[in-house]
Design a binder for these strands. Structure first.
Lengths: 199, 199
DNA sequence: ACACTATCTGACCGATCGTTCGTATAACTT
DNA sequence: AAGTTATACGAACGATCGGTCAGATAGTGT
């Protein structure tokens, strides 16, 4: 249960990798031990033993998605220079991440926040916490744009962050819904325009 | 099965009314015959007989939500004068509809499009169709703003529609997630700013 | 009042859900 | 090699899923 042996660590990883894919399509509630077991050719009880409960499996899946998102989006974006280049890089990476279908159902957090926004419980709370961190990150990057002189003073940072976030999530959902990826360009265009024309 | 008797019509209505509420919180997949029956104090098979299959129940729920949305949002918005007043009225009504929790889980279509965007099947197809109609409506209202001289020529109407739609859905999801309704004002502010300052 | 039909129920189906448990099989420690 | 854990399995649990069906109940038209 503690994952000390290499075998267990590996099983846990491939389980969570499959779990995020399932969750982006069918939701964290549509994520099922039986399906997970069938897909991975493992026993239901074997998988269950790794997590202890369905809720803990859902929470572990969120953590795993966080890691992947950090690796694919946050980390590379932070290699761009502070200020506007970094904010734009974050957005580019986010949209690329969704467009490339790193998870088959697109952006994990867009999917899961929509799924759990109206529910109660631990999963909802964790999603709210992540959402707050994400918004604060965007706010910080906006503030850095101003500090670096790349943007004029922003009257209401939270307002701007709300809009940026709205555009990114909409691009994800619309591209999944229509199976066209023109919406990513729409979002990128809107973001650049909203931040002031030049790169 | 044909709903000729008044009794059947009533049962069908209260069933669908409960169904939309459940669906906005737990999704159309989380919508369950057993739960519906328990909530309404009816038998599972009795409810089932009205729809014939779970999928048909889901589709009927979508139709019902459409009616309510039309009644609460579209129809009153169309009483505003053609052009910008009408477009703004539509947005105001939409946000009010979500904010007032006419459905306990907010905007039905924001929830369901997010739930089914990555899936296949009839429900997905119906949602895509509705989404297209909704976007075309927004595009038409934008065009009318230009025609009425309330707005300057719009270079890319679809781009603007994408942004408006993004803002509205984000307000719905964020307000549900955080249980604060400041996001509605954010969306309304952004929309007015994007359409050009004066009302 | 009667027949007819729409509506609803209750018992039941096989499948699947999350979960428990005893046991076998690996993998490390010594 | 033996002993000790970590890991995985298989069978079973009560609950619930969507769905079926025969029969009771209610409403309508004549």
């Amino acid at each position: 249960m503690d994952g000390r042996h290499a075998r267990g660590v590996h099983t846990r990883r491939i389980t969570l990798a499959r779990a995020v894919d399932i969750a982006t399509v069918d939701g964290l509630e549509g994520l099922t031990l039986g399906r997970l077991a069938a897909d991975l050719q493992l026993s239901k009880s074997g998988i269950f033993a790794h997590f202890g409960s369905k809720e803990d499996l859902q929470l572990a899946t969120i953590s795993f998605a966080e890691e992947v998102f950090t690796e694919h989006v946050l980390r590379p974006a932070f290699q761009a220079p502070r200020g506007k280049p970094r904010l734009l890089a974050l957005f580019d990476r986010w949209m690329d991440f969704s467009r490339a279908r790193v998870f088959v159902g697109g952006c994990f957090f867009s999917a899961v926040t929509a799924e759990f926004d109206a529910r109660d419980g631990k999963v909802h709370d964790v999603v709210v916490r992540w959402s707050r961190v994400w918004n604060e990150l965007l706010a910080r990057l906006v503030a850095e744009c101003v500090e670096e002189g790349h943007m004029a003073e922003v009257a209401d940072v939270d307002q701007l962050v709300f809009e940026l976030n709205a555009l990114g999530r909409a691009a994800n959902h619309d591209s999944l819904l229509t199976r066209e990826d023109s919406h990513y360009d729409r979002a990128l265009t809107a973001v650049r325009s909203r931040l002031g024309a030049p790169g």
